[in-house]
Design a protein around this nucleic acid. Structure first.
Lengths: 221, 221
DNA sequence: ATGTTCAGTTGAACGTGTTCAACTGAAGTA
DNA sequence: TACTTCAGTTGAACACGTTCAACTGAACAT
């Protein structure tokens, strides 16, 4: 395989992607134009659209790349045996990985916050990334031996995931030195979240659980 | 006051606003262009920008107008003596008022969902609308005699407001006949929300309350 | 060798939100 | 009445994301 043609094409794609990320880091997402991205890659405007469906699509590619990079980096976090510690370790690993692009991610939020935008973590294009993340928390729940009522099982990983998204969002916007406030927030909240998950196992709460599951059913249509 | 000049000017402003809302209702927000809005008002493109800072600003004006209209319409809802009933009545009054623009509001969400967008209910420009709404729920709490721990008092109205925003959001996207699913959702959830508010008054929960208040403090910076 | 094909590439053009220098005419001034 | 002013108005122009008809040249076929 690998003809010279294909090689050059792949190179061009990477060249464009990297010029774009560079610009995004320098100026933010909205402030970087496709013309600028193309010209910095030494390429015509149209070619950027040959390789990427849209400006948003470039960001989706960045997510994909991050997803791939993150896989191995998350492995050490899974050594923690307490659920609290593990969630914190997962978050710290992500903080470390995204640190260089924190500002750029912040600038992205004006698009990503809209659930209808492809850039949103809730969007259809983001599904693979999202499901990779669900799996992390599913694994954390399994391996730390938190006992879970059958009816709730599929939802608890989602709850942890949403908690993580909240912390990540806070971290992105956190302007305190070294994002210390984010760490403080996590330290003070993780216990509550885990407690809530464990409480859901109490037989006492079965009726409430049923009511909540009914709600979820309506919500999911 | 009221010279002919000023009258004509005010008329022009209204003419533009109404042409815009008409178009938004017909085609949605994103699909309506400023050129079209101007031309339908029989006016040059630039004049729309003389009266409205941006396309978004036209929508903000619509919010403002809705706010003014809604004041008296909400009064009957405040006759309910049970908190549950009153929240439902407030929601139904808003449903009724916004019904003709439900589709247009839906199309707006792709912008309004971003907390950084001026159109978001959480944005700075939306503050007056938001605070008017807070006040409704504050009043509902006061007048239905729900006893509230002092430390939580300022936050409970916000919780009800957020609940309302959630229901409104669901209603906007609700494609079921006459938005019956929204009503179902409200019927099944309002009890839980009110119960939660009342539980917060139990002395038993004081430590949890303190922990949560600390969290809120970190969140608000 | 020569011709064919089509992935890769170009840049002008489109439609958008928005800006701005210039114009108009009613209201105020002498 | 004649002059000044400036709120109200105009439409061409700008920068953007995106599209597209046309061109180029490596890979393959004959």
């Amino acid at each position: 395989m690998g003809t010279m043609r294909q090689q050059r094409s792949a190179d061009t794609r990477v060249k464009i992607l990297e010029a774009a990320l560079e610009l995004f880091r320098e100026r933010g997402f909205a402030e970087s134009t496709m013309r600028e991205i193309a010209s910095r890659s030494g390429v015509a405007t149209g070619l950027a659209y040959y390789y990427f469906e849209s400006k948003d699509a470039i960001v989706l590619d960045y997510y994909r790349r991050a997803l791939a990079d993150l896989g191995p980096l998350l492995e050490p976090a899974h050594r923690s045996k307490k659920l609290e510690d593990r969630v914190i370790a997962l978050l710290e690993a992500k903080f470390a990985y995204f640190e260089p692009n924190r500002r750029f991610l912040g600038a992205l939020m004006s698009n990503a916050a809209d659930p209808a935008s492809p850039l949103s973590p809730f969007s259809e294009p983001s599904r693979p990334i999202r499901e990779f993340d669900f799996a992390q928390f599913q694994r954390a729940l399994d391996e730390t031996g938190v006992s879970i009522p059958n009816d709730l099982a599929p939802h608890l990983a989602k709850i942890l995931w949403m908690y993580q998204m909240g912390m990540l969002l806070f971290w992105i916007y956190d302007r305190s030195e070294g994002q210390s406030r984010s760490r403080q927030l996590i330290k003070r909240s993780i216990g509550m979240v885990v407690l809530l998950l464990k409480l859901s196992n109490l037989p006492l709460l079965k009726p409430a659980r049923k009511a909540i599951l009914e709600l979820v059913a309506i919500l999911e249509g």
